[in-house]
């Protein structure tokens, strides 16, 4: 797998505040990455540094094989940072033509990309007449003009209404399906969970985790169970070393696994014990839960 971005011991200080602390990670081709972290955790600063708009304090980063200068590499990258920035007095097409000129690509893909984000009918309207959702979609179209090796999105759904959020997610899914590498920074966990295969978790400028989403916690998931004989169910599970903590809440029993076990196996086991289930679901921890566990672990 070829590497797209390598960040090595990157640090950025704003006066006494350290926004990014000794951060290292790398982005491989073909994956969808999420950078997760609460507000102010250094996500945007990190992206700003690799995108040539924020100066690093120390450390290094390089694009692709490390032989291209940052600004040349950026011509093969599509990126949107926070808010869509275009010339308000120019139309969508004029703005995109300008971007083509900067990226040194031919303007023939403008219509195709506008079509993709659903702005083709409004292509001759001035940018300032667009709604925020449309502006954001135009920004995505602009980032895709060069069919980039990697698409970088920083909080792409920030400030959008539910419909706008949905549209953006659909576009991201479409782009990801085409095999484009994506780096998505967000504090919205379900957003990352829905599209990303890998995550990098930041807190106060430090990396807490980087790797596959499902490998984030060494966890085997948990069962949600209901039965008529709740007491004997609970007693049986407690005696089994395969189960860790067991809680009962509102008549629903939650049992965490200590090792791999599938639902059929459990069902057979319980039936043999004379316990019939009225409800059986196996779940994985949500990213949110994992994220909170991870950040909590680090504080203590």
């Amino acid at each position: 797998m070829s590497s797209i971005l390598t960040v090595d011991h990157l640090t950025k200080r704003f006066g006494y505040l350290t926004a990014v602390k000794d951060l290292s990670f790398s982005i491989e081709k073909g994956n969808v990455y999420g950078i997760l972290g609460p507000n102010g955790s250094g996500k945007s600063t990190t992206l700003g540094i690799v995108l040539n708009v924020v100066n690093k304090t120390s450390g290094s980063f390089h694009w692709f094989d490390g032989h291209t200068s940052t600004h040349d590499a950026l011509k093969k990258v599509g990126a949107i940072i926070e808010r869509p920035n275009f010339y308000p007095y120019m139309t969508a097409v004029q703005n995109l033509k300008l971007v083509c000129k900067i990226k040194e690509v031919s303007p023939e893909k403008i219509d195709e990309k506008l079509e993709l984000v659903g702005l083709l009918e409004r292509k001759h309207s001035k940018f300032k007449t667009y709604s925020l959702g449309m502006k954001q979609r135009l920004a995505i179209a602009s980032a895709l003009l060069n069919d980039p090796e990697i698409l970088i999105l920083d909080e792409p759904t920030n400030g959008l209404d539910p419909q706008g959020i949905h549209q953006i997610r659909e576009i991201i899914k479409k782009v990801a399906a085409q095999g484009t590498t994506i780096l998505l920074a967000s504090h919205l966990l379900d957003e990352v969970e829905k599209v990303c295969s890998h995550v990098i978790i930041l807190r106060k400028g430090e990396k807490l985790y980087s790797g596959r989403v499902d490998g984030m916690l060494a966890s085997y998931g948990y069962f949600e169970l209901k039965a008529e004989k709740m007491e004997s169910l609970k007693k049986f599970l407690k005696s089994d070393p395969k189960f860790g903590s067991i809680t009962v809440e509102n008549g629903l029993l939650t049992a965490y696994l200590n090792e791999e076990m599938d639902a059929t196996e459990l069902n057979t086991l319980l039936f043999a014990q004379g316990i019939t289930l009225s409800h059986l679901v196996k779940r994985k921890e949500s990213l949110e839960k994992q994220f909170l566990t991870l950040t909590k672990n680090q504080t203590h």
Binding site: L51, L74, N85, K103
Partner: peptide, 15 residues
């Protein structure tokens, strides 16, 4: 004021 300088740099124009 339009922050387009930021976008220009991100799009691959060097300073």
């Amino acid at each position: 004021s339009n922050k387009t300088i930021k976008q220009n740099l991100i799009d691959g124009l060097s300073k």
